[in-house]
């Protein structure tokens, strides 16, 4: 790891200013991904701005809106009584992520900022357009079992590894960010981006922008929600495919539905067309199959991830079934 300067400001503005002053400065919160990336020479900041003293912690609900401070730990959100009872999908997704120790370090903002787990991104001797633009995509014709089936480009077929973000995109969360030009709100679905010609950019944040909170509106999905994470071992592994499924069922008819997938695209993958199919239909396997079929439109596989074309719809059916029975 290279040496770097370190500061720990206690006001948002000071933190943002510090980033603006140095081209190679970065925020650090939990550090569970950034420290790892720095150790491997993938990210080489000259200055770390430790934001842990900023007033961005806590979970609050008022006016039917749940607001989660960006520095709130993954474990704190997952165990928070309001989240468990009213937003179980988010709690389940968080608990499916990483390990208890990492959830005690990782923050909500940091979870959103985590980078892909593509092995070519992690090995500095291999080509990777995300790490080193212009070097090519090692995964495209390489070992791409973990990789995208939606929204990829020739430049990058990596996936976003977060579980939490899959639940947040399903729940129409809104991200509040503070930056040199002031505050703005970003709908969660627009926070992460597809790789296109700039896979080095994971999200739509601009230089100096700091995530301050995430908000979710109260909803009717607390009764029937399930986060299914399908992976190569039972715990402490990234998703091959994950599904966030939430249903508003009244008299066995699906009144409203939320569906998103992880492990399939460069961003958490919202499935609106499949949600629409479900609306007004009975909560039966036949409906779920229809939704799964709709969800897969436009999917494309590579040499080693063709199984996802079957695993993804099957997982949607399984998740919807479990959500409906929850």
């Amino acid at each position: 790891m290279i040496t770097f300067d370190y500061i720990k400001p206690s006001a948002n503005k000071a933190a943002i200013d510090a980033i603006m002053k140095n081209q190679n400065a970065m925020f650090i919160a939990g550090g569970t991904n950034l420290v790892d990336l720095m150790k491997r020479g993938i990210t080489t900041p000259e200055k770390l701005v430790d934001i842990n003293n900023l007033p961005l912690k806590g979970v609050n609900k008022s006016n039917n809106i749940l607001s989660i401070g960006a520095l709130t730990l993954n474990s704190e959100v997952a165990e928070h009584e309001t989240v468990v009872k009213q937003f179980p999908l988010l709690s389940m997704a968080l608990k499916a992520g990483a390990s208890p120790q990492i959830r005690n370090m990782a923050t909500v903002g940091g979870n959103m900022m985590q980078r892909t787990r593509c092995p070519y991104f992690y090995d500095t001797s291999m080509p990777c357009n995300k790490r080193a633009p212009g070097t090519g995509c090692g995964a495209l014709h390489g070992y791409n079992r973990m990789h995208a089936i939606f929204g990829m480009s020739e430049q990058c077929i990596a996936v976003h590894p977060s579980d939490m973000c899959v639940a947040l995109v399903a729940l129409d969360a809104v991200v509040t960010v503070s930056g040199p030009k002031g505050e703005r709100k970003i709908p969660f679905a627009s926070f992460h981006r597809l790789p296109g010609d700039h896979p080095e950019k994971d999200n739509t944040l601009e230089k100096g922008e700091l995530i301050t909170s995430v908000e979710i509106k109260e909803n009717n999905f607390s009764k029937h929600a399930y986060y299914l994470k399908v992976r190569d071992r039972a715990s402490y592994a990234f998703a091959l495919v994950s599904v966030a499924a939430a249903l508003d069922i009244q008299n066995n008819i699906i009144h409203d539905a939320r569906l998103a997938m992880g492990g399939v695209a460069h961003k958490p993958w919202r499935l609106k067309a499949a949600e629409n199919i479900l609306k007004g239909k009975p909560a039966t396997e036949a409906s779920f199959r229809l939704a799964a079929q709709m969800a897969m439109q436009g999917a494309k596989a590579f040499e080693y991830n063709a199984f996802k074309l079957k695993l993804a719809p099957n997982s949607i059916i399984e998740a919807l079934t479990l959500a409906s029975k929850a």
Binding site: R117, P119, Y122, D123, S125, M126, G138, H141, G142, Y143, D232, R233, A234, S235, Y236, A237, F238
Partner: peptide, 25 residues
Amino acid sequence: GILDNRYGRWINNNFADYHVPVSAD
């Protein structure tokens, strides 16, 4: 253990990508 034969280099040379059983398994 998975090798990318184009480079003759390991792809999953760590505990996150080379899975060994955890307690839940």
